[in-house]
Each structure stands twice: as C-alpha cells, then as structure tokens.
Design a protein around this nucleic acid. Sequence first.
DNA 1: TGCCAGGCCCTCTTTAGGGCCTT
Length: 209
Amino acid sequence: MLVTSCVVLDFETTGLSPDQGDRVTEVAAVRVANNQVLEHYASLANAGRSVPGFVTQLTGISMQMLRTAPPIRQVIHALATFIGTDPVIAHNAGFDRKFLIAEYRYAGLTPPTNAVICTLRLARRVLPHLPNHKLATVASHLGIRFPSNAHRAEADARVAAHVLLALSERLADAHDLEVTPDVLGHITRWPIAQWQTRLARHQAPPVPP
DNA sequence: TGCCAGGCCCTCTTTAGGGCCTT
C-alpha cells in the first residue's frame, strides 16, 4: 500500500521540447495518499503559443479552446500550490519534469526540487514482459480504463495514478515491501539488468536502508 | 537543403547506434 502523499502530474503541450519554445496547454495533478486517488487540480492554460494541427488532432485541444483559458502564469502558480513539497510522479517523468521546470521559470517561480518518480521506468521493471510500456498499454494490462479521452491531462493523470497504485500493490505483495516514494525512487534508479537478476533469483528488490 | 528533444535502455556495445516514450 502506498500511504505517503504524492502528486501524479500530466501535461499536454504544443510539442516535445520547451527548449524549442514548446509550452504547456493543459495541466492535471492528482493527489494520491492512503492507496486512494484524492483531490485534483486541472486546467487548460493559455501561453499564447500556437498549437500545431497534429497536436490538436492528438489531444483535441484547439487554439479556440485556449483563447478562453486562464493565463498560464496563473495556472502554474495554482499548480505549484497544489503540488507543494510532495513527490511528483508521471509517466515518462523526464518529459513532464522539463516542462515543469521551464514553466516555473516563466512564471517567476524557483524551479521545483521535489522528488520525481517515473511510472514508465517502474512499469518496465515490474512488467518487463509487456510488448511496450505506453501508458495505455500498461493501464490496459492492469485492467485500468480511461475515464474519458486519452491524451487529455486529467484522464492521463488519473490513469497514471491508478497505474502507480496497482504497481505499488504488486511490489508490496510480491516482495513483502512497505512501498513508499523513497522505495519507488530507489527501485526506478536500479539498473534493469540487476533488477531482473534479483527477481530471477527470487530475491527482494533492493530498497533504501 | 536538411535538419530541427532528450534521456533511458538494449545490443550484432562500450571509440555506437537505434528503439522507446512523452506532445
């Protein structure tokens, strides 16, 4: 059981790289504690950046929708308040982390120092047999359904939160572990090859002292 | 004209290259 409070985050953006000028178009953050999905914060965000057609096709987020959305500075300040000092969790967390840091800077905030945990890395270690580790594939394998359209921030964040809880439960059951964000962080940093060697020997995964 | 992300991970590797994953 994952007892400690943490925040599962998902961004929709205009592209793949803040270094190339891409900006966030929608944020969703879901707080998880006591093995449950609790409150959430979600909002479209207007950063004044055009949305490429293929991104609108992928996410359903259009320029027209963003015209009436709150300014991104306001959204990021609200997000920062929501996240606080909790560990931040995301699927392919490196992607969301670099946008989080960039948007905090644009918003005049100090870049976050929260612990970051990646459910993609976790899924690759706990479910190595899957054909791929896209969020939809992992969720489907775990019997988790999207509450609405995939590739919208709130739906993806909620699904990632349930993926986190399901993977944590598997770890706890299989290895008699107390799963905390510290343990998850340690496990996802452990090299896959050594992880699989330990599993093959029926050894518990390495955890912090 | 051709390129335009980046970090992780694997392997026909390590003096490298390519697939995966996110929008």
